[in-house]
Design a protein around this nucleic acid. Sequence first.
DNA 1: TTTGACAACCTGTATATACAAGTGTAGAAT
DNA 2: ATTCTACACTTGTATATACAGGTTGTCAAA
Lengths: 250, 250
Amino acid sequence: MSMVIPVNKNIYSHIYNDYSARIQSGQLQAGKKIPSESQLAAAYSTSRETVRKALQMLSENGYIHKIKGKGSFVLDTQRLNFPVSGLISFKEVADQLGRTIRTIVYENSLVPCSSSVSQRLLIRENEPVWKVVRAREIEGEKIILDKDYFLPSVVPSIPAAAAEDSIYEYLEGKLHLRISYAKKEISVEEVTSEDRLLLDLHDYQHIVVVRNYVHLVDTQLFQYTESRHRLDKFQFVDFARRAQMEGNPL
Amino acid sequence: MSMVIPVNKNIYSHIYNDYSARIQSGQLQAGKKIPSESQLAAAYSTSRETVRKALQMLSENGYIHKIKGKGSFVLDTQRLNFPVSGLISFKEVADQLGRTIRTIVYENSLVPCSSSVSQRLLIRENEPVWKVVRAREIEGEKIILDKDYFLPSVVPSIPAAAAEDSIYEYLEGKLHLRISYAKKEISVEEVTSEDRLLLDLHDYQHIVVVRNYVHLVDTQLFQYTESRHRLDKFQFVDFARRAQMEGNPL
DNA sequence: TTTGACAACCTGTATATACAAGTGTAGAAT
DNA sequence: ATTCTACACTTGTATATACAGGTTGTCAAA
């Protein structure tokens, strides 16, 4: 099953979890004002700074909106439908949607690295990499082709059970790898004969390709994933907050 | 022109701007350790908490990576190529790329709201909305079709000059609208006859659609934008940090 | 040589306090 | 009645302090 269980090791994550849950369940409705920072500090027997840390996280994740001089207000997360942004794995999304999902593992082996993958993983050509190829079947149709490549120095092997379930759960739960950040590129490319062979593509000529470069907490790049989605089933949702004052990253 | 000029009204944004600039210019190279929080506090004659606020922003935006017990390290922003995530307008991206860009304004008028747009802007059908339709020509080819819809109560009108340049600059600079957050949806759909007519689409049967719902600081939804990109020219880059401890938004 | 204890340094969390600045309201002065 | 002022309440910024806990190197004991 693997629902993400909120961990409350800190006071601020306790507050964050309380309010994110209440807002998402609709218990706190959109537009309503939540208690002021001072009130929350008193309610949780903590300091205002600690409350502010929780509120900042709520704000960043699209749960609330802060207005100076007035207070913090609940955003319409139903309508915002919800940030599937970030590093959400296929299994997490699937669990959320509650669909009938099946994973077909086509390959799970140690292979010499191709030229293309070696450039992406920043290693030499023909260096060995773990390659896992899987199709994702949703309601009877193979919609997504996931091609994962791992550095063997970090991931010695992928058990068959993990490949069929969730590799992320295995990496984080069993290997205790601490994944830190990733870069994601989305583009549309022409279908390959491999796509045709392994997916139910109908007559589509193109396919959405999501390339994911995953790094550990020590900044080491250890995984490259190419997730190929059938056009009609692809959707990406993002919540973005406009940086008002700071120099924009661009 | 409109480079985004970093504003240093606060100490922490001063530090943020200093370091983001130095990292992006390559002056600070990837992997190198930046001074510790205490050292930075001393260097900027401020407190550690203020430094931490700046470092948190740098971390969130993919400039640095913090490791407890060790320090903060510069990430490879060259290779990460850079977060075009967030609420970046076409003009901002175009300026960055330095390409030859032309904007063709097809329509800029007050029209009764269609059923589809009324649902997205949460207003009644046939209510008046400002509609702006523009094609974006890059190196001689019309690649992107931008269809913007504004609430007239917020945006009385769009001057022709603004439509040809940057509507965002007009909204923020002239009308002083304070844009706060947006939801973005990316999907792929079949081309319409309008797409065919207004863009140089070659033989593509599909088109990438980016729907943008833009809110003001008072949380009011005031703009809906449909940005339609030719398949082969579309790319979306995102930087995501994995939430390690808090309950995942899903 | 290896192991273990310790110190020095780092980031993470939490508290208390202060003032600046935006918002709204009640009440006084006009 | 209208305008203005003062006050209360809100979030934003900044400082000082304290301790927890991860990392690294040193030095002494085994």
